[in-house]
Design a protein around this nucleic acid. Structure first.
Lengths: 193, 193
DNA sequence: AGCGTTGGCCAACATCTGTTGGCAAAGTTG
DNA sequence: CAACTTTGCCAACAGATGTTGGCCAACGCT
């Protein structure tokens, strides 16, 4: 993720490193505290750099936020999975992203921010439309759009209660337990009738 | 809700009216913009009153926030409902609260705030423990706690995507459509195996 | 009427915020 | 070496925010 200082190609300025460090610190701050409570000064301090540098490299707090929101869900190809295993595959995929993947932070950042920030909510709409909806297309019964929406609702609900609100009952569950209990529900949403 | 100036009992100061108006304005602001982006000055303006009055009556922004968080989910008694209708009853209950009930605002206020505010998250834990978990006790299969947690996750996910993130696919669904598609999923979470 | 109490506003404070402009050191190019 | 660009820091501004204290009018009681 953190781009090394290779002089492989043409570009590769010395500042690329700084730029990356700033973005990294920003991602963590935004993810932990949301947009409003994240200050440019704090990000700069985390990155061991002057606040004015953040401005120079990213223009404004809003643009920095924007840069931190580039996210790829990397959804699996559900059409390659047998119909009755798709729900489980989905739940497993997201659990894995959230728990192990370092980019899982970015996902939670987006979720946390989208709740109080219109712009972030817009990004979420876009991600849903360009990544989630297409991945579920063909994997659901009639009224696909409705089902895709409600499946997303359930998965986001899991992320919300487990990683953001940290409701103890949900936090204490093992990933396996979640898969066992939630996958049938997702399957029902996708297939029933 | 807004207490009139009756001199029925002993208390009933003239300021009760103002106090209520402030709280009302605060609820709306907090619900619409969350804790950080809500300013005392804006609340005061909504209530047609001086900012310093807000302080005098509620002590601080944090305490005002606290006062706005008193919420009663008013959950139905699920043990009185036949087992295979409980999921549907739950979904209907929350949809009704969110869409028609004026106190539904308070619920969304809590959800929106809890995402970026530790204190609000704590209140959410408490509400879950004292209201949701007991209501679901006995209504779920084995490992009740786990099921209760995941049912909450699913319901909160619906609130999140429909009323807060406003993902179009979810927003466009009719309440009936949601009941039809989501209730089976909730039922699966409650009962399967 | 005279007095204390209550309800209200105004003005100011200290602090924090995003943001800007100027200036020094380090590196690059001729 | 000299000119120039890049990378960085410092200091400061302008605005907003939570919060405080003092002052005035309206009310309630005796």
């Amino acid at each position: 993720m953190t781009q090394d200082i290779d002089s492989g190609t043409s570009g590769a300025r010395r500042s690329d490193r700084t730029r990356a460090v700033i973005l990294d610190a920003a991602r963590r701050r935004f993810a932990a505290h949301g947009f409003e409570r994240t200050t440019i000064r704090a990000v700069a301090a985390d990155a061991d750099i002057d606040p004015s540098m953040v401005m120079r490299y990213y223009g404004s707090k809003a643009q920095l936020f924007d840069a931190a929101l580039d996210i790829d869900l990397d959804l699996p190809d559900l059409s390659a999975v047998p119909a009755d295993g798709r729900a489980e595959a989905l739940v497993r995929h997201f659990l894995h992203r959230w728990e192990h993947d370092e980019a899982g932070d970015a996902l939670l950042l987006l979720l946390r921010s989208a709740v109080t920030n219109e712009h972030a909510a817009g990004r979420m709409h876009a991600i849903f439309a360009t990544q989630v909806a297409p991945a579920l297309a063909g994997a659901a019964g009639p009224e696909q759009a409705a089902r895709a929406g409600l499946v997303s609702a359930q998965l986001l609900g899991l992320a919300l209660t487990r990683y953001i609100l940290r409701i103890p009952t949900v936090t204490h569950l093992s990933p396996e337990q979640i898969v066992t209990t939630l996958a049938p529900a997702i399957r029902a949403t996708l297939e029933q009738r």
